[in-house]
């Protein structure tokens, strides 16, 4: 493989891998507090993409019920506002975050209060995911949506660096933005967890929920904060992927949701640096699948997941769990 191609693949891998990372951080946050995998995270990812799309003031396909609703309210099948993309991204993610709180109240808290088997939370969150995906289909239709072209105004769509005698390295502006936004979020999240009082409380709850609630930490509020953050990250990931390729319909978060599971297992469940590392490893791994096997790309993450589970179930960075009797 020549060096320019290598550089190009690394670049592509890092861009997609960084989105995997922030998406998987959403799973990790919830898992570290509740020891539960929130299977509706993939649906929240999709929601984030659609919310951001709405906030950019783009039109809804007439097949979606929302088009009729907006038509009645505003006389056009779109919201009467056109936010700049970065604001729409944050707004969409915040709405996804609020949805995370709703999901917590609906699917997780009632089970927790009844002291039910943690596996049931898996099923109830899957139920919520089914409902959300079909709500999206109901309101937006099953069509493919693309964000408005050229969301960054004057910035060029891509920059070509000429390679030495080979094809040029193409750096898409979107890739740079995706990577930049993701890394900023990872840094902010790390600072939040390590430097703030709420972050300290989160770490305490993830270490031992009962003791920390005895020490006066409001566990219930922290769980809400966790779900908000988790869904915020999931929503941003969805919007970024939607920006990079397009929103391929209500189901496009499901496959991504599964891949996110591979990422957190690879990195170690409930481990923040692990999730970031896992995301980048899977992103790079997929970028290096040779072109003739590209149809098998989707299997890479799961093959890695399977192998890691068998060889090192605690993940790349995780600590081995000790079975307590």
């Amino acid at each position: 493989m020549n060096p320019t191609l290598l550089a190009q693949q690394i670049l592509n891998g890092l861009a997609i891998g960084s989105v995997y990372a922030i998406f998987a951080l959403g799973y990790t946050l919830v898992f570290s507090i509740l020891r539960i995998i929130n299977f509706s995270h993939g649906a929240v990812f999709t929601l984030g993409a659609y919310f951001t799309y709405l906030l950019t003031g783009s039109a809804i396909n007439p097949n979606g019920q929302l088009a009729r609703l907006f038509g009645g309210l505003f006389g056009q099948p779109a919201l009467p506002l056109k936010l700049p993309f970065i604001l729409a991204l944050l707004g969409g993610a915040a709405l996804a975050g609020l949805m995370g709180i709703v999901i917590e109240r609906l699917a997780f808290r009632p089970l927790r209060e009844r002291g039910a088997d943690p596996l049931l939370a898996l099923v109830s969150s899957l139920g919520v995911a089914v409902a959300l995906v079909n709500l999206i289909q109901y309101f937006f239709g099953a069509e493919l949506y693309s964000y408005p072209a050229n969301p960054f105004g004057a910035l060029p769509a891509a920059i070509n660096f000429s390679g030495e005698g080979g094809p040029p390295i193409i750096v898409r502006t979107i890739q740079v933005i995706i990577f930049g936004v993701s890394m900023v979020l990872v840094v902010l999240l790390t600072l939040f967890i390590n430097r703030t009082k709420t972050g300290k409380a989160l770490r305490a709850v993830s270490e031992d929920p009962i003791t920390s609630s005895l020490l006066g930490i409001d566990t219930d509020r922290l769980i809400l904060v966790t779900f908000f953050l988790s869904s915020f990250l999931g929503g941003i990931a969805g919007a970024l992927i939607g920006l990079s390729v397009s929103i391929a319909g209500p189901y496009f978060g499901i496959a991504f949701g599964l891949k996110g599971l591979a990422v957190i297992i690879l990195g170690g469940l409930g481990d923040i640096p692990g999730a970031v590392l896992g995301g980048l490893v899977i992103g790079l791994g997929e970028a290096f699948v040779p072109a003739q096997y590209v149809a098998y790309k989707d299997a890479v993450a799961f093959a890695l997941l399977f192998i890691v589970l068998l060889a090192r179930p605690q993940g790349l960075l995780g600590r081995a769990l000790v079975q307590k009797v």
Partner: peptide, 19 residues
Amino acid sequence: EGRLILFGLLIAIGTVFFP
């Protein structure tokens, strides 16, 4: 059109009320 929405919600609610 939205029967799968109800289906999903029923699964979630069923899990809560019939653990």
